[in-house]
Amino acid sequence: MAPHDGSDESPATVYGFHAVLESLHSQSRPVQRIWILRADGRFFTIVALARERGIPLAIESRERLDRLAGDRHHQGVVAQVAAKEYLEGEELLDSLSLRPVPALLVVLDQIQDPHNLGAIVRSVEAAGGDGIVIPKHRAVGLTGGVAKASAGALEHVSIARVANTGKFLEACQQREIRPVALVPEGVEPYSEVDFTEPVALVFGSEGEGIRPIVLKKCDQRVRIPMFGKMNSLNLSVA
């Protein structure tokens, strides 16, 4: 496994009420320190859990929290947690053999927006997906903004990072996991995908879509039917 930034095991910053609370509940990675706007009201549960587990906690001004989070939208709470580890692509695929139901992976080709990635993490967790695959280069990583947008779901979703998305899809095919591209020009609607078989859904970046070199590795191309005047959806909505 690799730490969140791919280079060392430096701590990560998680902010936002639900993201921090789920970090405490899940205990998937140690929470090392918490900074909070106040200790009463909606923050009581976070404060109680921190004190119960002996996690250092400090009351800070909103300006201080802005600096700690690097974002003004922290909802009054910031935590320092151990880095979330990425899986290697093969590790993720190996783990699927233990699943009693057909695999469902989401492969993201060079997604840049932290909010989109966080929202996708939240959707994958809600749908019972087995994991998300992102490239090592030219793509957003697991930032505090991603954790906040996921509303805590990041603690429950496996994330793999791969050097070559096309080769990862070839590895999926070798394991009888069908790569399916979601593209505007898809021949069939997405409802035609057979989810009773293992599937890797492939989504492209916000501006460029799926790169041709990745698209040609997909066995099926499907679309979301659009009945209004717009011909596409925001990536996280799709």
Rank of each mutant, 00 (worst) to 15 (best):
S28T: 13
E88I: 01
G228A: 13
H4Y: 15
V199P: 01
R53E: 13
C218L: 06
R53V: 02
F195I: 13
E91L: 08
I111K: 03
Y15D: 11
Q32M: 10
R161E: 10
G70N: 08
V121I: 15
A160H: 05
T165M: 13
A160Q: 05
R38M: 00
V146K: 02
L105I: 07
I46D: 04
V133C: 12
G76Q: 05
V140A: 11
G207Q: 12
F227S: 09
A153Q: 12
L68G: 05
S7N: 12
E9V: 12
H137V: 06
V106Q: 04
I134L: 14
D219S: 14
A139L: 06
A160I: 08
P114K: 14
F44T: 12
H115Y: 10
L117H: 06
G186S: 15
P189W: 08
V78F: 00
A147W: 01
E91G: 09
G209I: 03
A12P: 00
E88V: 07
I59P: 01
E52I: 09
P30R: 12
T45A: 15
R175F: 09
V20D: 02
L24I: 01
V162M: 08
H73G: 00
V81Q: 00
A39T: 13
S26G: 02
G141I: 00
K229H: 05
A127G: 08
V121E: 04
P56E: 15
L68S: 05
P189I: 13
F203C: 11
I177C: 05
S191G: 13
F168Q: 10
A50L: 05
P184E: 04
A48G: 11
P135S: 10
Y15Q: 11
A103K: 07
V121G: 04
D219T: 08
Q220I: 03
V214D: 04
Y86A: 00
E188I: 02
L92V: 05
R178W: 11
H156V: 01
Q27M: 00
